[in-house]
Design a protein around this nucleic acid. Structure first.
Length: 825
RNA sequence: GCCGGAGUGGCGGAAUAGGCAGACGCGCACGACUCAAAAUCGUGUUCCCACCGGGAAUGAGGGUUCGAUUCCCUCCUUCGGCACCA
């Protein structure tokens, strides 16, 4: 007989070894079964696994196991997003090479992950910082370059003038934006950098047809892309006759444009500023460069700006209007210049009031009098066009784009006149790929003075990172500083040429890792086409909601670009997406080493066993939301495991002369099949916490049935078998052990998920609450087959109901089938 | 600031489709077992007035409805993201 006490250490290590030896979780192409590619976002190798990793991996693991028992051929791979800033920062600090540190961390985390008892197929592990991986990251860059999706453009980075280095956003601290290392105020520096033309796919990225993604993610991405319809209109600068294009969603208000505002970074600013305004403009530009776009764009912020001394001509009415610069106009949105219509735009109104610029009403609100010279605020609603030359009297609705008759007419007119055209603008921007760092995939491009930029030839890939590099910040990226690395020959002419010394954004690596998992050792291409044809697309993708507008949008763009390059098929890479929340520290704050509130799963696994930690991870919070960690609560899951063990193995359980009544047995079967229905539904819906609750509840019923003599009956055996199968995805070790104890064939993880016996779930009678004027006053018990009339008369016959009716006749009696009776007096 | 979530007992949470608010668990209290403790088992546990019984309550306020944790409006708090953290 088995131990009374459950020895988690022995049992868990025994089965982990056997599963590994048997390659139980290896995913192999098998066309006889439907496939299921379950993907969970890969971790950054930070050093130690923390409880948040368990939270993001264990519930998806349980679900992958469930899918396997449902009959799918399941692939559940794991890997590491191994390039990135932290390893490089650490290298600067203590001199340990990022490669060394990263691979040590991976080794450590892999060992920690193996204690989870997850069904990761380690033969498919992919590490983005290994040359056999980043060779293909480089190759993909070249494919995008060949698709004309990569281009170079000047773009500003945050720069520390003291450290002489580019800073990441997280390295810039405080409202005054100083360098985290030396406190020096950060400045902007313009660098020539690589971009991907993601905006080419903006419209397609707005289409989520055919994928099952959470509405919140779709909304976040839609708002992030922020498509708006309007017009581009060309104004002319008076002094030098330069054309300046603006984007506006309100071409119907063109006649009300009384000034223009340029972004301080607008290339024309220097040229048009008059000498007497030069000093003020320069000063304003400097302060604008010190702020973030969030600070600059804040709606409630006091509007500021400076006059350039220059004027432009409004092309619709030839009115001469002043040109200002203001930090609320961003170079990254639209054309970096706007026409200001203070009468019909709140920000322009505030600006005009502050600087006493003219306000001309051109849309008269419906019902307003002809003479309403002084506006209290911008009017942005519907009305009739006035002061608008040929358009006076035209109706303007509150609708956007061409649906608005005023906008439609003006759009046609400006096109005809050749002063502008219909246009669509996005807030979404092209993807800046370049990073002035060492620890990333090199951008495989070569520059020759004669032939410009050309990709590194395929047979020279990968461009390997040199190992001997200098870390100290010197104003150049470590690769640029290396004495020889950058020197190469031009692929076109063979003459001396220079490599690109910037590396790629790590989001590039994580945009395609799901493809590398297909065949991480394949060297004829980024992936083996046979594996691709079988496994892709990803069926379920899980990870944090914080990636909604970054990684999840990058990977969709990447997929579409590869599709157009003929490398992949289908319009979307991931069919179903589900997001989990975050585990906070016990103090309710985000876990961080500096706060000392990090929960180490290793200690918990050692003390309670992986199954208990798995069960608690799934139970303690709603997966979708997350919650602060509560280390006391795990006792409940530990007790559950222990009580299950006792229930299945306790020798004191009577095994002879089963004496349970038919009712006990029927109730037990009803409960197990009801639980099975609930658990199955919860697995489908990623509602993991209630799976554990239901299993706990069923166990409590089983204890009662044991007292009533159910042990040894066929019903008991059925319940035991179903119970272990339901447990298997959640707590794989103890389920396997108890399965063996019952004498069933190895392995429980290859068993079929049980079928619900619907007939067995039916209740004989049901209890219904009876409400009188919305308050529950009584409960009645009726047969499950009772008709509505039966229920009504039973309810009205109740003494308590009669008492509350006080002889009055009910106005209305509502029977909600199977739920309640509501009597209105 | 903008975009998107979330607010239910002391705590985590539950509540098929608008229908019994608080499942399951933690904690706590009491009891059993024990010389004692731990473990285990049992009972109780939203709040208020309490004898029966009644009243209030799902962040706040309002609305729709026979009926609202659930739908609508306004507000508050809090979390995630804001393009070089991953």
């Amino acid at each position: 007989m088995t131990d009374i006490y459950y020895n988690h250490k022995e049992v868990e290590s025994k089965w982990q070894k056997k599963w590994e030896a048997d390659k139980l979780y290896r995913a192999v192409i098998d066309t006889s079964k439907p496939k299921h590619y379950a993907l969970t976002m890969l971790p950054y190798p930070s050093g130690d696994l923390h409880i948040g990793h368990w939270f993001s991996m264990i519930p998806p693991d349980a679900r992958a196991r469930y899918m396997r028992m449902k009959g799918y051929n399941v692939m559940f791979p794991m890997g590491f997003d191994a390039f990135g800033l932290p390893a490089e920062n650490a290298a600067i600090k203590d001199g340990v090479h990022p490669m060394k540190r990263t691979f040590q961390n991976i080794e450590r985390m892999r060992t920690q992950m193996k204690t989870m008892g997850a069904m990761f197929d380690w033969e498919r592990e992919a590490v983005s910082a290994s040359p056999e991986y980043y060779k293909w990251t480089e190759w993909f860059f070249i494919q995008l370059f060949k698709q004309r999706l990569a281009y170079r453009k000047m773009s500003a980075v945050d720069w520390c003038p003291n450290c002489n280095t580019t800073l990441a956003r997280e390295q810039v601290w405080g409202d005054d934006r100083h360098c985290e290392r030396c406190q020096t105020p950060v400045i902007k520096k313009n660098l020539d950098q690589w971009f991907f033309k993601a905006t080419k796919y903006a419209d397609e990225l707005l289409n989520f047809e055919g994928i099952d993604w959470p509405q919140t993610v779709k909304t976040l991405q839609t708002n992030w892309i922020d498509r708006s319809e309007g017009a581009e209109v060309r104004f002319i600068v008076e002094s030098n006759q330069s054309p300046v294009t603006v984007f506006t969603t309100r071409p119907d208000t063109l006649w009300g444009a009384t000034f223009m505002v340029f972004s301080p970074e607008h290339p024309l600013v220097n040229e048009i500023t008059t000498p007497e305004n030069k000093a003020a403009v320069e000063e304003y530009k400097a302060q604008a460069a010190r702020q973030t776009e969030i600070q600059r764009g804040a709606v409630d912020k006091e509007k500021t700006g400076v006059f350039t001394g220059a004027y432009a001509v409004n092309p619709v009415n030839q009115v001469r209007i002043p040109i200002w610069i203001a930090d609320y106009v961003m170079m990254s949105y639209g054309t970096g210049a706007i026409m200001a219509v203070p009468a019909h735009d709140e920000r322009d109104f505030a600006f005009a009031q502050k600087y006493e610029l003219p306000i001309v009403e051109v849309i008269q609100p419906v019902g307003a009098t002809r003479e309403s010279p002084i506006l209290e605020s911008a009017s942005i609603g519907a009305g009739v066009m006035v002061n608008s030359g040929p358009f006076n009297g035209t109706n303007v609705s509150a609708e956007k784009g061409r649906k608005n008759p005023g906008i439609a007419k003006v759009l046609d007119w400006i096109t005809e006149q050749g002063i502008g055209k219909e246009s669509v603008n996005y807030r979404y921007r092209d993807w800046l790929i370049s990073r002035q760092r060492y620890w990333g995939a090199p951008i495989p491009m070569i520059h020759c003075d004669v032939h410009g930029w050309n990709p590194v030839p395929d047979d020279q890939l990968p461009v390997l990172l040199p190992e001997d590099v200098e870390w100290r910040p010197t104003g150049e990226s470590p690769l640029k500083l290396h004495p020889t690395w950058k020197n190469t020959t031009c692929p076109v002419c063979g003459g001396a040429a220079i490599r690109e010394t910037d590396t790629m954004d790590t989001f590039m690596c994580s945009s395609w890792y799901h493809l590398r998992y297909l065949s991480p050792k394949y060297d004829q291409g980024p992936f083996d086409p046979a594996e691709y044809d079988y496994w892709m697309p990803v069926d379920t993708y899980t990870g944090g909601i914080e990636h909604a507008t970054m990684h999840l949008l990058y990977t969709r763009f990447f997929h579409k670009a590869l599709r157009d390059a003929g490398i992949v098929e289908g319009h979307e890479p991931m069919m179903q997406l589900r997001n989990q929340g975050m585990v906070l520290g016990e103090d309710g704050d985000k876990m961080s080493k500096s706060k000392g509130n990090v929960i180490a799963p290793d200690l918990l696994v050692n003390k309670y066993g992986a199954d208990s930690v798995r069960a608690y991870i799934m139970f303690f919070a709603r997966w979708e939301t997350g919650a602060p960690w509560d280390s006391q609560g795990i006792e409940g899951s530990v007790r559950w495991i222990r009580r299950v063990w006792t229930l299945f193995t306790d020798p004191s359980t009577p095994t002879t002369a089963p004496g349970a009544s038919d009712e006990t047995k029927k109730n037990l079967r009803r409960k197990v099949h009801q639980t099975l229905r609930k658990v199955t539904r919860d697995f489908e819906k990623f509602e993991f916490n209630t799976i554990i609750s239901s299993l706990m509840e069923l166990m409590n019923e089983m204890y009662k049935a044991r007292e009533a003599g159910a042990v040894g009956t066929p019903e008991w055996k059925e319940v035991q078998e179903i119970y272990l199968k339901m447990m298997a995805p959640v707590t794989p070790h103890i389920a396997e052990e108890l399965w063996t104890v019952l004498g069933k064939p190895y392995s429980i993880h290859t068993q079929q998920w049980p079928e619900v016996d619907e007939a067995a779930t039916k209740e004989d009678s049901i209890e219904l609450p009876v409400q009188i004027n919305a308050k529950v006053r009584d409960r009645i018990t009726v047969s499950a087959e009772a008709t509505e009339d039966d229920i009504k008369s039973t309810a009205l016959a109740s003494e308590i109901v009669q008492k509350f009716l006080e002889g009055k006749h009910p106005k209305k009696v509502i029977v909600a089938q199977g739920r309640l009776v509501s009597i209105v007096v």
